[in-house]
């Protein structure tokens, strides 16, 4: 009899009280979660405000440094101006200095192509680079040589586009008087 004990629990609390206890338990859970949420929100707010304050302080330091270095650059503006002017000038100088003009090139070329036996009465090169030659040629071979040199692409370095004989006559002295027009390529 003694070994066989049975535990019998009898709930003597009224049912309303039970319901109240269950409600309280539920509320404590909700309350805990609610307090946790509020604390998290307060923490996040504090964190963002603190970060903003730090960031503002950092930006202020950078702005101060920027102000200092801007002042330094302003003080050295004369050197900058000199450098800008120098670059401005050198760009044009390097393009033009020593670079022969079209007119110079044409004259030099013609000087090279005209045979020694040909006597130049006049030679002009205009602003476009076209040339006009009036020459005295001793014989037909020299005339042939003159025209061939001017026409030949190899000899004229492909710088002459067109050669035209404006006039050609032979005087009593046997000399050819030739007037040529040379158009640059």
């Amino acid at each position: 009899m003694a070994s066989r004990q049975q535990n019998i629990s009898i709930n003597l609390l009224p049912p309303e009280f039970m319901a109240e206890e269950i409600k309280s338990a539920q509320f404590y859970k909700i309350q805990t979660i609610g307090v946790g949420i509020i604390l998290a929100m307060i923490f996040l707010s504090s964190l963002t405000v603190a970060l903003r304050i730090l960031q503002s302080s950092n930006i202020s330091r950078i702005e101060e440094k920027l102000g200092e270095v801007t002042g330094k650059v302003v003080d050295l503006k004369d050197r900058q101006a000199s450098l800008v002017l120098l670059k401005n000038r050198l760009t044009t100088i390097s393009q033009n200095l020593g670079a022969a003009s079209k007119q110079n090139n044409m004259y030099t070329l013609l000087d090279k192509l005209i045979p020694q036996s040909v006597s130049i009465t006049s030679l002009s090169v205009d602003k476009i680079g076209n040339a006009a030659i009036v020459a005295l040629v001793p014989d037909s071979n020299a005339l042939d040589s003159l025209v061939t040199n001017l026409y030949s692409k190899e000899k004229n370095e492909d710088k002459i586009g067109q050669v035209s004989i404006e006039s050609l006559n032979r005087g009593r002295d046997g000399l050819f008087r030739v007037s040529l027009k040379v158009v640059a390529r």
Binding site: A100, T108, D111, V125
Partner: peptide
Amino acid sequence: STLLNSLEKAPRLMKVDSIEVS
């Protein structure tokens, strides 16, 4: 030719615009 080259290589920028030899 020497004259023309010297003028265009002078330490003062200038270009030959036209040439007339007679």
